[in-house]
Design a protein around this nucleic acid. Structure first.
Lengths: 200, 200
DNA sequence: GTCTATAAGATGATAGAC
DNA sequence: GTCTATCATCTTATAGAC
């Protein structure tokens, strides 16, 4: 399992952006090198100078998309565990995502589905989910240690948060149900409050 | 939004089964009429006698897969709200899914991702999710009414259960994380217990 | 109903000019 | 680095025989 890249040359960045746009308008199942080239405004052959195959390009794109998503997950927001947790939850499952955020999440939903049959994708999403759980777990554990939170199983809480977040995002990206994000987000907050608030 | 079919002729059923097998071995993005024909052990032209296009066949298959999944969601398990809820949760997020169940869920995960860009798929998953929420909500509300459960917002609970279930399934189908299903399932049970148990 | 043959076009990838 | 031209293969879909 190789670590995800965090830097791209200008040319690669342009290809990644074109792939992103192509994915948004055609979806993963209908994504072709021609569509990417169209968005790139270059010939179909151009991307092959940087990537040996479509597969290799797509694995690179997964790195790129996940990096974009992870960015700023646990940025400096102070020391208060409650604030850090709220901040992480809002980053992971924004109550009112703007269009850019929804687009990125839609693309990630499509990419994640490929992990069912593609091992390289599967490894990346396994790593991503493990990192999210670890981030949440660490925040909760800190709160337990300093008495802000009740003495709970931080890993169990973190796994529940991850599942609810993924579910909320899939609900939003794949249905027209109005409350697909609002409801799980509100009940996630209430769940965390109920589980973590110290007993009186 | 047309209601899903619940009956298929023998010939159609054979095509649906072949499509299912083709989907399992190739994934949605690489699914072709040739792959379906191979699994069907007939010529590529055979399915066109029953379906005008690949798109039409796939929409029919979504009906078929969702029907298979929904089957037995709220079967007769008695009147006790707690038992009915446990039964529904186990159906929706089995603690130890067998291979057949995991296969079906993997296929549904791939199909759901198509709902990002395919409106027919999107409508079907909107309907499916609404039905699941309604089933859970009704069970919880009954429990509230007869005093088995605390006086909670049954819809909010149901939405949270749906999000956790979808998240747990995606975690299992798209990662190698050992606890992708176990952890959310256990914490979902504990969440429901904590939220629903009447205050002493 | 299912077959073979075939159409018409898209696909991933490469060679070679510039 | 990027282009045009090209290749072999695969794609969805249809026509017509049986």
């Amino acid at each position: 399992m190789s670590p995800a890249r965090t830097e791209w040359s200008d040319a690669e960045e342009e290809i990644m952006r074109a792939t992103y746009r192509a994915l948004l308008s055609h979806g993963y199942a209908d994504l072709s090198m021609s569509h990417i080239a169209d968005e790139l405004d270059k010939s179909k052959a151009a991307p092959y100078y940087y990537y040996d195959s479509k597969d290799e390009l797509l694995v690179a794109f997964l790195d790129y998309a996940i990096y974009r998503f992870e960015d700023g997950l646990d940025t400096d927001v102070g020391d208060d565990p409650k604030e850090r947790l709220d901040h992480a939850v809002e980053k992971l499952l924004p109550l009112r995502p703007d269009e850019k955020t929804r687009d990125l999440q839609a693309v990630l939903v499509e990419l994640r589905a490929q992990a069912v049959t593609n091992d390289a994708f599967r490894e990346q999403f396994s790593r991503l989910d493990a990192e999210i759980v670890e981030t949440i777990r660490e925040i909760v554990q800190r709160g337990v240690d300093d008495g802000t939170f009740r003495d709970v199983d931080a890993t169990r809480i973190a796994e529940h948060v991850l599942a609810t977040i993924i579910g909320g995002r899939y609900g939003q990206a794949t249905t027209d149900r109005e409350d697909a994000i609002g409801a799980p987000r509100v009940s996630l907050t209430s769940y965390l409050d109920a589980e973590l608030r110290p007993r009186p």
